[in-house]
């Protein structure tokens, strides 16, 4: 497919363009491919966030289709299958602290939405 964001890839080697801001629906999520990974992108009042699309609790690629909101002060998406909450900033599952999904750093450059091509390490998140 002819991705509109492909142009910017060379600008910054560590960043990959995935779509335009207008491809996102405010207050909701979409899925995107990043290499062989599936990513869930959310456009929230606090910015754009990217976490893994795979829901470890149901085993299906569906997190992009969950409802976003806040729970005890944390920005979360609720899995559409069994409703566990995942923190959009850290990927942690609030119901099951042992479970976490990957997160990717996001940049919005003008109209373009860019993702780092490596997920954030858990260690980086702790800091």
């Amino acid at each position: 497919m002819n991705s509109p964001a492909a142009r910017v890839v060379s600008a910054e080697p560590a960043w990959r363009g995935v779509c335009r801001l207008s491809d996102l629906v405010p207050g909701s999520g979409v899925a995107a491919r990043l290499g062989s990974d599936q990513v869930a992108l959310f456009h929230t009042p606090e910015g754009v966030f990217a976490i893994g699309n795979f829901d470890p609790c149901s085993g299906a690629n569906v997190l992009s289709r969950g409802i976003v909101g806040d729970l005890d002060g944390r920005l979360v998406v609720a899995s559409p299958v069994y409703k566990q909450h995942f923190c959009l900033r850290t990927g942690e599952c609030l119901e099951d602290p042992g479970v976490r999904v990957p997160t990717w750093p996001v940049q919005v450059a003008g109209e373009d939405v860019l993702l780092a091509d490596q997920p954030q390490s858990a260690a980086a998140l702790e800091r």
């Binding site: 405010p26 207050g27 085993g59 299906a60 569906v62 289709r65 409802i67 559409p80 299958v81």
Partner: peptide, 17 residues
Amino acid sequence: GLQDTNDNFLANLQKDG
């Protein structure tokens, strides 16, 4: 952004997505 996935896609989500 308000709708459960079912209303959002006007269909019922199954276990495999």
